[in-house]
Structure formats: structure tokens, C-alpha cells
Simulated scan of single mutants.
Amino acid sequence: MQQESTRRTNRDRTEATRTDLIAAARKLFTEKSYAETGTPEIAAAAGVTRGALYHHFADKQALFAAVVEQEAAAVAGEIECASPPSLFARDALIAGSDAYLAAMRAPGRTRLLLLDGPAVLGRAAMDEIDNRHGNRSLREGLVAAMRAQTTVRLPLEALTALLAAAFDRAALAIEAGAETAPYREVLVALIDGLSPTHLQAPGPARTR
């Protein structure tokens, strides 16, 4: 019993240290950029030694990947909360689009996911992360939308990638100071363009 309690305590301590490192790294990466942040200051901000940092993460890039993964999961979670399966396919896609734009307003998130992420991890690694989170939700929403009507059948992977790029471009523009409304209007038009008169059938749907 005591041995199990000790294992649980060690596991909790390990998880707490990892959580502190990710939080400290996120703050520094968004305030200073990945390139300008060193592992000594991350360790100091998290209240641990550099040895502890390297025990949990192979290097700064691995820690950055964990930060990006956490951010992508958070965005996907907000999208899924906004687009439950009870919504019509079109409504779920639009609700998810709105949730994505709102989620990307979190300080530093656009920089982490859309600028530093691809630059540091590479496009292929970022695509893998996106496919586990936001793109997975978008793909599910598009599948539901196309199932809800019979007139449009587009290549799913290409459609997902291009719509995801449109959402990302909108987020970058809004982050730079552009008004949200024109970008939202275009995104809605793109969704309706899949088949404006046939996306109103109910069914499970998700979006980016």
C-alpha cells in the first residue's frame, strides 16, 4: 500500500514538473520567441534545475513541441465544445469556425501555432500535430457535411488542407489587426459553397 502511494506521489511530482516546464516555456516563447529563449531561463522560471528539464525533454525543441501540442489540443477542445453532434452540419462548421478564430486570440497562440511552430518543427511535424487536433475536427465536419447532401464530392484531404489554410490565414490577419467580420464572411461563403442548399441535414459534425 505504502509502495503504491510512493509511486503515485512520484508520478504526481513528475507530472507537476512537466506541467511547470511547459507553462514556463510557453510564457517565454511567446514573450521572447523560441530563438531568443534559452533552457537556463526556462528552468529558472519553472523553479527546477536544467538537469530536471533535460530529464523530461531531450532538448529545447522537444519542449517547444510539447507546448505546441498542448496549444493545438486546447484549440481543438474549444472547437468541439462549440460544435456538438446535435447541430446541423453547416451550423457545426460555422460554429467551429467562429470558435477557432476566438481560440486563436489567446495571447501568443497565433505565433506559436502558425509562425514559430512551422519554422522550428518543420511543416511535416506541424501537419502531424494539426491532424491529431484541429484538422481532425475539420475533416470530421466536412465528412458530415458531404454526407448530408449528394451534389458535392470533393477530395477530402485536399479540401481539409485548403480550408485549414484559409482559417489560419484569417487568424494571422486578425492577429495583425484586421477586422474579424470580413474574414468570417468569406469563411462562411466557403462553407456554403460546398453546397449552399444541401448542408442542412443533421448529423455529427466538427470543424477546425
Rank of each mutant, 00 (worst) to 15 (best):
residue 135 N to Q: 13
residue 139 R to D: 10
residue 123 R to G: 10
residue 125 A to T: 09
residue 88 F to Q: 09
residue 114 L to E: 04
residue 146 M to N: 03
residue 157 E to L: 07
residue 24 A to K: 05
residue 84 P to F: 08
residue 28 L to C: 02
residue 58 A to N: 04
residue 60 K to W: 04
residue 187 L to D: 10
residue 10 N to E: 14
residue 159 L to A: 04
residue 62 A to R: 07
residue 119 A to D: 12
residue 144 A to W: 03
residue 102 A to R: 13
residue 194 L to A: 06
residue 155 P to N: 04
residue 118 P to R: 02
residue 180 T to S: 10
residue 100 Y to M: 09
residue 149 Q to I: 01
residue 53 L to S: 03
residue 56 H to Y: 06
residue 62 A to F: 03
residue 174 I to G: 03
residue 152 V to C: 11
residue 190 L to E: 15
residue 40 P to Y: 05
residue 28 L to T: 06
residue 166 A to Q: 14
residue 109 R to T: 13
residue 36 E to D: 11
residue 155 P to F: 12
residue 25 A to Y: 04
residue 31 E to R: 10
residue 57 F to N: 00
residue 189 A to H: 08
residue 110 T to N: 12
residue 127 D to P: 01
residue 130 D to N: 13
residue 145 A to N: 04
residue 144 A to N: 09
residue 204 P to W: 11
residue 132 R to T: 01
residue 186 V to T: 15
residue 139 R to T: 11
residue 79 I to D: 02
residue 128 E to L: 05
residue 16 A to H: 10
residue 73 A to L: 08
residue 200 Q to N: 15
residue 208 R to Y: 14
residue 110 T to C: 13
residue 133 H to W: 10
residue 53 L to M: 06
residue 64 F to H: 09
residue 198 H to K: 03
residue 26 R to L: 00
residue 12 D to H: 11
residue 129 I to E: 07
residue 107 P to F: 03
residue 139 R to S: 15
residue 173 A to M: 11
residue 177 G to E: 05
residue 97 S to F: 04
residue 179 E to G: 00
residue 129 I to L: 13
residue 194 L to F: 11
residue 59 D to A: 03
residue 125 A to Q: 11
residue 57 F to S: 00
residue 165 A to L: 10
residue 109 R to I: 06
residue 21 L to K: 02
residue 111 R to L: 13
residue 190 L to I: 07
residue 4 E to C: 00
residue 54 Y to R: 06
residue 52 A to W: 04
residue 10 N to H: 12
residue 92 A to R: 10
residue 94 I to W: 08
residue 10 N to Q: 14
residue 132 R to D: 09
residue 154 L to A: 12
residue 125 A to G: 03
residue 203 G to R: 08
residue 19 T to A: 13
residue 201 A to D: 11
residue 186 V to D: 15
residue 197 T to L: 09
residue 123 R to I: 07
residue 102 A to S: 13
residue 1 M to A: 14
residue 163 L to I: 14
residue 8 R to Q: 13
residue 86 S to K: 07
residue 161 A to M: 02
residue 149 Q to A: 01
residue 154 L to H: 08
residue 15 E to F: 10
residue 61 Q to D: 12
residue 90 R to W: 03
residue 95 A to L: 05
residue 144 A to Y: 05
residue 124 A to H: 08
residue 65 A to E: 15
residue 108 G to R: 09
residue 173 A to H: 08
residue 74 A to G: 11
residue 89 A to S: 13
residue 5 S to G: 01
residue 149 Q to Y: 02
residue 88 F to R: 12
residue 65 A to T: 02
residue 17 T to N: 12
residue 157 E to W: 03
residue 179 E to Y: 06
residue 125 A to P: 01
residue 174 I to S: 01
residue 11 R to F: 02
residue 158 A to V: 12
residue 67 V to F: 07
residue 19 T to E: 14
